[in-house]
Design a protein around this nucleic acid. Structure first.
Length: 118
DNA sequence: CATCTGACCTAGT
DNA sequence: AACTAGGCCAGAT
């Protein structure tokens, strides 16, 4: 029996992964929206931390589609230098300007709103 | 063991 | 409207 992380943490991570994978291409989401959608409002910080383990997650999690509230690519530094968020987002048709998502308000995909869950 | 930081956000003053 | 403080959880020093 390998030592497992706290169930709540595992559950949290599972939810974050699920929501992040639901983000359609060409769209971006925010940590707070995801956290709130999984019932962890205010735990936006954890979302970012959890997404750190999403790189080797299967199926792959489009963490590059997750930005902060202001549309800033706050986690660009954690990505591969070969494929920064900017490139990944641009590849999906998202305009990025100086680590900032252009028309963020238009491209912002809220799981709670789009899925109409509360 | 204590302290701080970290892919942040909300709420209160 | 702007600023401050608090919250969330775990890892790192």
């Amino acid at each position: 029996m390998a030592a497992m992380p706290k169930p709540s943490s595992d559950q949290f991570r599972n939810d974050v992964f699920a929501i992040t994978r639901l983000i359609p291409a060409g769209r971006v989401s925010s940590y707070g929206s995801i956290a709130a959608s999984i019932g962890a409002k205010g735990a936006a910080r954890r979302v970012g931390w959890v997404l750190n383990g999403s790189f080797e997650a299967v199926p792959p999690v489009p963490a590059h589609r997750v930005v902060n509230r202001m549309g800033l690519l706050t986690g660009w530094m954690h990505f591969s230098a070969n494929m920064p968020m900017e490139e990944l987002l641009r590849a999906e048709g998202v305009e990025v300007r100086e680590n900032r998502v252009v028309n963020f308000e238009k491209l912002h995909w809220d799981p709670m709103v789009e899925c109409e869950m509360e």
